[in-house]
């Protein structure tokens, strides 16, 4: 896991899912699962632990590949320059 949690800790995140990056001035919207992943990353958890926490805090049907979803989300954060 190469995410740099200090960069993520700078983000202003509202409960409604509005995210402001004070370094670039960019703003984003994240959904509830995205918020959960962000807070997991900020806390320094690894992908497996975050995937497990998603499974615990959301009602999942069973077919989802939570790990792949988290990986994809981290990839998006990287494209947005929010993690290295």
């Amino acid at each position: 896991m190469s995410s740099d949690s200090s960069r993520l800790r700078q983000l202003a995140v509202s409960e409604s899912g509005f995210v402001f990056d004070p370094l670039t001035g960019h703003t984003f919207t994240v959904n509830a699962a995205g918020l959960a992943v962000l807070s997991g990353l900020k806390a320094g958890l690894d992908v497996d632990a975050i995937a497990a926490s998603l499974g615990a805090s959301f009602e999942v049907e069973g077919g989802e590949d939570l790990r792949r979803d988290v990986d994809d989300f981290v990839l998006r954060l990287r494209e947005h320059g929010l993690v290295k």
Partner: peptide, 11 residues
């Protein structure tokens, strides 16, 4: 502040 913009963007 960003609250109006944030609310409009998110919800």
């Amino acid at each position: 502040d960003l609250s109006t913009y944030g609310a409009l963007s998110a919800s």
